[in-house]
């Protein structure tokens, strides 16, 4: 039962990744695209966790933690650039 549920969940998260990528492509303004990137990395964390349970390997946590750190820093740097025209003043 768990296997089937994980496959369904992987399909749902893959659809979520596709939709946020669509917003990244068509997003009419720059903050829309930054928000789409933010959603994309969060969906990637969810996908890595599901893959970790599916394969049964605990090796994916470090990758997920790194993605979370880098994604947050990226989002803040991009919004700071929009806000001030510069990242580090």
């Amino acid at each position: 039962m768990l296997e089937i549920v994980i496959l369904i969940a992987l399909a749902l998260v893959a659809a979520a990744v596709a939709m946020s990528f669509w917003r990244l492509l068509i997003g009419p303004s720059v903050p829309d695209r930054i928000l789409a990137l933010d959603t994309l990395y969060i969906n990637t964390i969810a996908m890595l966790m599901l893959l970790g349970i599916h394969i049964g390997s605990a090796l994916f946590f470090e990758a997920a933690l790194l993605i979370a750190l880098m994604g947050f820093i990226g989002t803040v740097a991009l919004s700071k650039y929009l806000l001030r025209g510069d990242i580090i003043e």
Binding site: M1, A9, A15, A16, M19, W22, D32, T39
Partner: peptide, 25 residues
């Protein structure tokens, strides 16, 4: 485990659906 995984996946899906369907930023 199945309940938690399904809830999480559905909420992730709904979040991205909102990102695509809603009208303004």
């Amino acid at each position: 485990l199945s309940f938690l995984i399904l809830t999480g996946a559905i909420f992730t899906f709904i979040g991205s659906l909102g990102l695509v369907r809603l009208k303004d930023f």
